[in-house]
Design a binder for these strands. Structure first.
Ligand SMILES: [Zn+2]
Ligand SMILES: [Zn+2]
Ligand SMILES: [Zn+2]
Ligand SMILES: [Zn+2]
Lengths: 159, 159
DNA sequence: TAAACTGTTGAAAGTCATTTTCAATATTTA
DNA sequence: TAAATATTGAAAATGACTTTCAACAGTTTA
């Protein structure tokens, strides 16, 4: 559960290891699934994407992929532990690469403008792991999400 | 942000103080809104309820109230800080009385059967408050939710 | 108290993210 | 290569939630 600081994160490559992960559960590696993973891998900055945003980005870069395929692929990848599903906004889900492909972190969301800031705090993950173990649960995932109003939006309201 | 341990929680009563809270924002106290609050106040045990469950319970106890009214009332009450909105299951929202009417706590959810366990952990809330302040956000709400598989469901799968 | 004003309700229609259906296509297996 | 099985795109379906609107209720004013 502890994250080693300053360790380079493993980089999921779109080739053979992804295929292995999929095949292990009877899934196949398709170009569409590969493209979705590559998008997460290469778009390091704005890396909380909704299904529609993923679709839009891929279509924009010339890929032929339908929105249903996006939704199906997201399910598969969450199930395989490649992606995390996040509840950042009211009406849609967001996705990001899951640990260990990215560092485990939590989210601070502005409910006005949707801006998201991330922060790491090992103690939180530790509390989660402890509670889970104490109660005999198998831990799948945990999220600490803070909803608030960012400084910019505070000013905007004040004017 | 600190919670005093062993302090009796204030008990929202369905009478005048609820009226005051509503009126302050231009809302009115109606019997429907009162009934919803009473349901939360009196059903101490299974106190994470979806809109549909609230509706079902009230209809079952003979109240005349529509599902649209439930949804509207939930919005109003969340806005007033009387209720908290929770992301416990995939496809619907759950609600519970918010602090200070109940103690501030976090949730451990079994993704198989939906069972929910609660736990208090002040350090988490403190971390949240700290991060929020550091970044200049106004804190509205924070949730730490752990998703896992409960012991019973582990056995069920193993058989 | 009554009229005017404003908020609320129920029923039904609408919205919209997500899921499912199904025939065509791609990948894997034999 | 052919059979077997998984995946895809397009369109229809689903379902939680929201909105519309006319009737109704609580509040304010005179
Ligand atoms: Zn903002
Ligand atoms: Zn993130
Ligand atoms: Zn369970
Ligand atoms: Zn709770």
């Amino acid at each position: 559960m502890m994250t080693e600081p300053n360790q380079p994160l493993p980089r999921i490559n779109s080739g053979s290891d992804l295929k292995t992960v999929l095949n292990k559960e009877g899934f196949r590696l398709t170009s569409q699934r590969q493209k979705i993973l590559e998008l997460f891998r290469d778009v390091a900055l704005d890396h909380h994407l909704s299904a529609e945003e993923i679709h839009h980005q891929l279509v924009e870069q010339g890929e032929k992929i339908s929105i249903s395929t996006i939704y199906r692929a997201l399910h598969v990848m969450v199930g395989l532990g490649l992606l995390q599903e996040l509840e950042l906004a009211e009406d849609r889900k967001y996705y990001e690469l899951s640990t260990p492909f990215t560092s485990h972190h939590h989210h601070l969301v502005c409910v006005q403008c949707g801006a998201v800031q991330e922060f790491e705090e090992v103690s939180i993950s530790d509390v989660g792991a402890g509670e889970t173990q104490t109660r005999g649960f198998v831990l799948l995932n945990s999220q600490f999400t803070i909803y608030g109003v960012c400084p910019r939006c505070q000013n905007r309201l004040g004017s």
